[in-house]
Design a protein around this nucleic acid. Structure first.
Lengths: 355, 355
DNA sequence: CTGAAAGCGCTAACAG
DNA sequence: CTGTTAGCGCTTTCAG
């Protein structure tokens, strides 16, 4: 009973060897009992009891690093988010976490600011997790992703279409959302409809919000007017200045706007109010995401609702599939969206519109 | 040159042995070059070059699990949050991350729902990280925390006073905040001031928002009326029903409320509006947190601003100090707050009030 | 049904 | 200035 290497505070996390000693069995047996697959019963009931009791008495938990090293598997998934200040990801993370847990994986969130270029990637490269789900424009577009994938890390991209077809992507149908939102405004009689958006990406492939916006305009016989597209920063403040700029646009003024996301839309609503415009009487707004906050704005925000739970769950499932396949099988999923009609467009009272 | 164990896709993450072979040196040398402390130069410039070149050529990144196992240190800090749907923590996390990075640590976020009882704690117990910063009522109060600390994990509690004096705590001065908010309302002439709050915790130790609320009332010679304290759920919807209940209270009606946090306050503002009350003319509201969203509500929300960046940075510093000391030194920090006057109380235009 | 031995990839002692 | 050796804690053959 050599009790070596004590910590500064006198204790030391118990190891499987400690458990083995206490239960008077081998480490192998401890491992077998504690990780025993249901099927294979190579352990007697009596031994099993002893081991379990010993483990419980010591409060034993397997050392994560040792196990990961040995198994070349961490059972850990990282969700890479650009920021935590948009509650959009809350539901996504919860659902991903739940789906992962069912399969024996844990989910952890790594905030990596857009443009930081995966500076934290020593962790990712170093196989600190088995796979990553990546969100955020730049992060998703990063060429480093395919390097990570080549290193054996499973990669899935969330809410963006990856430029790289070899990388899995789970997103909602942004184009359909843009179309739905814009069509809604058209149906309410608007003919000068603006679009407030985050910086436009060059790699537009006909799959983004603005494409749906343009399609709805075209279908209604309305010309696309670049002067009505305002690019701004992705924040509430950005939404406010976006609205401001839209109002200041030359030519016939806009009477409505389809806004990139609810975060921006909250800012836009505030600025419209400050400028003395009454929404929806003087101006209509549609957001995107279907955030809870939209139920509490003045007026409540009509928005394209995205199935965040399904998105998160699916992302986890796809990723785990790839991890367990051992090879990078790319899957692409595009989930449908629906219009969540609240009060910011007028015309109808809260309730679901006809499809 | 035995190239063994290829992955399904034919590649394999390079190891330090691979680098050593390529550079024609020993693994030790590779390790020394790549982790070399600035001071100790036991490596010739030439060798260093060779190693660095080889590592670069292979795209070598040290294996996290192996390194952690060997060093008994992960250089990883987990921030345990109850949910991601309150943007409050965004700044906290960013600041913590920055402070940690300066010291060579990475920060990861683990969402653990309140009441889940650290179910994910196999990771925490298993030494998957060196320390944790815990937020959320129940999580902070969990007795498991001291177990984790006993296991050698550094623990710091955020924004709550830990019931356990042996655990570090970094929070803002909630009592002062409650006092500041309530005094502001008193100064504006309100005499029936309600308080909408999340469930009250038994362990009230004179340090929470409500204590400051009561102190300000007392100082103004106003009686504390339990009928004006409404307990509700921690969400925007909860804030709405809280406001509702406050309006329905019997006795002389409230004309103002100090609300637990901005999330709740957003909901409260919305419900007041729906009920036809004009804020601040008919009712005044003060929130807590100083979130960005408060700048975009109708009217903009006056709130007790909390130094979230400092909080996060300090938490990381305290934790890292504890990690590197090797023993659980408890530190308690309570940061000051200030009133952020916007429009939801009237009386003065946006701008800082006199202290 | 159980144990002994090997080794995951890395770094820290200790020799030279 | 560099290499050899050992071992972190675990799981996994392989023998019994």
């Amino acid at each position: 009973m050599t009790r070596s290497r004590t910590q500064a505070d006198g204790s030391r996390a118990p190891t499987s060897a400690d458990v083995a000693r206490l239960a008077d069995v081998s480490q192998t047996t401890v491992s077998q009992v504690l990780n025993g697959k249901a099927g294979i019963t190579r352990i007697s009931a009596e031994t099993r009891e002893k081991v379990i009791a010993a483990a419980a008495r010591l409060g034993y938990t397997p050392n994560h690093a040792a196990r990961s090293l040995r198994q070349r598997r961490t059972k850990l998934i990282a969700l890479v988010l650009p920021t935590l200040d948009n509650p959009y990801f809350s539901d996504v993370v919860n659902a991903a976490q739940e789906a992962a847990r069912e399969r024996g994986y844990a989910v952890t969130v790594m905030p990596i600011r857009e443009g930081d270029g995966f500076r934290a990637s020593s962790l990712l490269q170093g196989a600190a997790c088995d796979g990553i789900i990546v969100a955020g424009h730049e992060n998703c577009a990063s060429p480093e992703l395919r390097l990570l994938q080549a290193r054996g890390l499973a990669v899935a991209v969330l809410q963006e279409q990856s430029p790289d077809p070899a990388i899995s992507s789970i997103s909602v149908d942004l184009e359909a959302g843009g179309h739905l939102a814009t069509r809604h405004l058209v149906a309410l009689g608007h003919r000068r409809i603006g679009h407030v958006t985050e910086r436009l990406r060059p790699a537009a492939n006909g799959m983004s919000r603005i494409d749906g916006y343009r399609r709805a305009l075209a279908e209604a016989g309305l010309a696309f007017d670049p002067a009505l597209v305002v690019v701004t920063e992705n924040s509430m403040a950005g939404g406010a200045t976006g609205a401001e700029r839209l109002l200041a646009t030359e030519g016939e003024p806009a009477t409505a706007a389809f806004v990139y996301n609810d975060q921006l839309a909250v800012g836009a609503l505030a600025r419209l109010r400050e400028r003395g415009l009454l929404v929806p009487r003087d101006f209509a707004v549609v957001g995107f995401d279907g955030l809870a906050v939209g139920g509490f704005t003045a007026p409540p925000l009509t928005s394209v609702d995205s199935p965040r739970g399904t998105l998160g769950r699916l992302a986890a499932e796809v990723l785990i599939r790839a991890i367990e396949a051992g090879s990078p099988m790319a899957e692409t999923h595009r989930l449908p969206v629906r219009l969540l009609v609240r009060g910011s467009c007028g015309g109808q009272e809260p309730g679901d519109p006809p499809p």
